[in-house]
């Protein structure tokens, strides 16, 4: 079993006012492999959060299926297995921390799973170390900054030893420094521990580090590929109301002006390199 999350023709609709059905997702097929770092992009109301909520059975599909490590999310008796395998981190760190002390909060998940006390202790310490918050273990959540709180929330999920972590706009409420911290943590979890990461976001530059980018627009998959493949398609993204990273846009505009420059630049360094090459010519 190489796929951790698999959706087959996932349709989700809900009943809106005057009995009309509102389609949020129209038949989405996604296969997410173990160890992958997937960024799901889309603007507000594109259905990306709804999609994320299907990954650990918070929502069940109207039609189609979602399988987590081979378990269909419709199996209610397997609910806790699914939620242990796929952890979820939400936007507002304040609203997902339960306990009044950092380490107690991280222990909350394993406690619910009925893990042995000594084993919980071990997992909590490891989880806090993996997000670099170990020295804050005795702090109260309200003494921490937004980025630190969000890292604690991530540790709370990590302590449950999930195969996959789904993060639903984890940086939307953070300042730039907090965003950087959280992104670094996510990347490290993926690199060092091989945890599958699904990052839902509407910031393009956060998706640059991912292995794979999926762009969702009004309930459909618009693009799916490596960051380079996806961000090259500047026009498609712009039409969908999305931005591209600044440097990619610069290259795109320069090319439009007739300069011979590669459009697939994602980072500042790459951009500088391309530009110097251009100037040397």
């Amino acid at each position: 079993m190489n796929e951790i999350i698999k959706t087959e023709n996932l349709v989700f609709q809900y009943e809106g006012e005057n009995n009309s059905d509102i389609m949020v997702l129209n038949g989405i097929n996604i296969h997410i492999k173990k160890g992958e770092f997937v960024a799901v992009l889309g603007h507000n109301g594109s259905g990306k959060s709804t999609l994320a909520k299907h990954f650990n059975a918070i929502l069940l599909p109207t039609k189609g299926n979602v399988c987590v490590d081979g378990i269909n999310t419709r199996h209610e008796e397997k609910l806790f297995d699914i939620r242990q395998k796929v952890g979820m981190v939400f936007q507002n760190p304040d609203n997902q921390i339960v306990a009044t002390i950092v380490e107690e909060d991280v222990a909350f998940g394993p406690e619910n799973l009925g893990v042995e006390p000594s084993e919980i202790r071990k997992r909590v310490d490891e989880a806090l170390e993996s997000v670099d918050m170990y020295e804050y273990r005795r702090h109260a959540p309200h003494q921490l900054s937004g980025g630190q709180k969000q890292r604690v929330a991530i540790a709370g999920v990590v302590a449950m030893r999930p195969d996959c972590i789904v993060l639903d706009e984890p940086t939307a409420m953070l300042d730039p420094r907090g965003r950087k911290e959280v992104l670094k943590t996510i990347k490290e979890l993926n690199d060092t521990y091989g945890t599958t990461v699904v990052l839902i976001t509407h910031y393009m530059d956060e998706a640059v580090n991912a292995d794979r980018v999926i762009v969702i627009d009004s309930g459909d998959i618009l693009l799916d590929g490596t960051p380079k493949d996806v961000f090259c398609q500047v026009k498609v993204l712009k039409d969908a109301g999305l931005d591209v990273p600044q440097v990619t846009e610069l290259a795109y505009e320069l090319r439009k002006c007739g300069l011979n420059i590669n459009v697939d630049v994602l980072t500042e360094d790459e951009c500088v390199e391309e530009l110097t090459k251009l100037l040397e010519e």
């Binding site: 979820m88 609203n95 997902q96 909350f108």
Partner: peptide, 24 residues
């Protein structure tokens, strides 16, 4: 907040007292 917290707790497999252990 209460609604979001409840959701976050459910995602972390909270289901009351039954089968719950304690770290401390």
């Amino acid at each position: 907040r209460a609604e979001e917290l409840a959701l976050a707790m459910e995602c972390r497999c909270y289901h009351g007292d039954e089968g719950r252990t304690r770290m401390k």
